[in-house]
C-alpha cells in the first residue's frame, strides 16, 4: 500500500499542489495566463514563479512566453506527464485513505 512518504515530492507541497490542481481544471490543449493563475491562488508573483520553476524543471508544467499586442504574457499548462502525475497523486491519496 502507498504511504505518505512515497508520494510524489514535486506535487506534495501545498503551494505546488494548488498550482497543479488549478491547471488541471484547464481542458487538454489549453493554458492559463500567469496573472489569472496568480489571482486564483492568492500567491505573490515571486512565490508563484519559484514554484512554477520547480514544476517546470520536473517536466510537469509547460511555460510559453508570448505577446498580446505589445504586452508580454506568460501562459502555463500542465504537460501530459504533469497531468498524469497529478492523477496518480490523487489516486495515491485516495488509496491511503482507503476511499
Amino acid at each position: 500500500m502507498t504511504g505518505v512518504d512515497e508520494l510524489d515530492p514535486v506535487i506534495h507541497a501545498a503551494a505546488r499542489l494548488k498550482i497543479t490542481a488549478t491547471l488541471a481544471t484547464v481542458p487538454d490543449g489549453g493554458s492559463m495566463s500567469f496573472p489569472r493563475l496568480q489571482e486564483l491562488l492568492d500567491l505573490t508573483a515571486g512565490n508563484l514563479a519559484t514554484h512554477l520553476r520547480k514544476l517546470e524543471d520536473a517536466g510537469y508544467v509547460e511555460v510559453e512566453k508570448t505577446h498580446r499586442g505589445r504586452v508580454p504574457v506568460t501562459y502555463l499548462a500542465l504537460t501530459t506527464t504533469g497531468r498524469r502525475a497529478f492523477e496518480d497523486y490523487t489516486a495515491a491519496l485516495r488509496s491511503i485513505l482507503g476511499a
Binding site: A15, L17, A21, T22, T25, L40
Partner: peptide
C-alpha cells in the same frame, strides 16, 4: 499549513478539492 511541509493525505485531498471548488466558483 506551512507552504513547504507535506501534510497528511486527507489534508492534501481537501486542499485539492478546496482549490478546484474555488476555480469552479470563479467561473
Amino acid at each position: 499549513m506551512n507552504e513547504n511541509t507535506p501534510g497528511d493525505a486527507r489534508e492534501m485531498l481537501d486542499l485539492i478539492d478546496g482549490q478546484q471548488r474555488r476555480v469552479s466558483r470563479d467561473y
